[in-house]
């Protein structure tokens, strides 16, 4: 076991810090050290996308990033999306369109949708599918996820 180092970063607008080994994955650091368990782990090989977060404005799979690499980073996780008890329009759209079932992949889906809509506020269906390609869902057949992202884009353009 290598020596631990202190990592400082900003998560959901709050400055946080904690210790990590060189091999600690960012997702484990966020969940176990910072205690933000909304970010989930579905594979640890970078396929499923359950651990998707926004790091310095870009969506990343946090199982593919080492905690060390997040030193000084600005991170947004699912917990940071709703403001003052009000849901983000993407969250509202997922709720209204039954865009989830078991909810395990949902934080990752929502964070990927957040990134997609930040870059492309009016995506076509094809662009939504490409934008969410890295996020597996076993429950919904993606049908209502696509519908939710379309609805979110409309809400956000208003």
């Amino acid at each position: 076991m290598a020596e631990k180092r202190r990592i400082k970063l900003t998560v959901n607008g709050v400055e946080m810090e904690g210790e990590a080994e060189p091999r600690t994955l960012l997702v484990h650091f966020i969940r176990d050290t910072l205690g933000l368990t909304g970010t989930h782990i579905g594979c640890d090989t970078g396929h499923c996308g359950c651990c998707t977060i926004i790091m310095n404005g870009v969506s990343v799979k946090s199982c593919m990033v080492l905690a060390y690499q997040a030193e000084g980073a600005d991170i947004l996780t699912i917990e940071g999306l709703a403001k003052d008890g009000k849901l983000h329009p993407i969250q509202e759209a997922f709720w209204e369109n039954h865009g989830l079932q078991c909810g395990y992949c949902t934080p990752g889906q929502i964070m990927s949708a957040y990134f997609l809509l930040s870059r492309n506020p009016k995506p076509t269906e094809e662009e939504i599918r490409r934008g969410l390609e890295g996020n597996y869902c076993r429950c919904t057949g993606y049908v209502n996820i696509i519908k939710s992202v379309k609805a979110a884009a409309e809400k956000m353009s208003k």
Partner: peptide, 12 residues
């Protein structure tokens, strides 16, 4: 169930 699941407050 969904408000807790879409805000990262689900408990697994």
């Amino acid at each position: 169930e969904f408000p807790r699941l879409i805000t990262g407050q689900g408990r697994y």
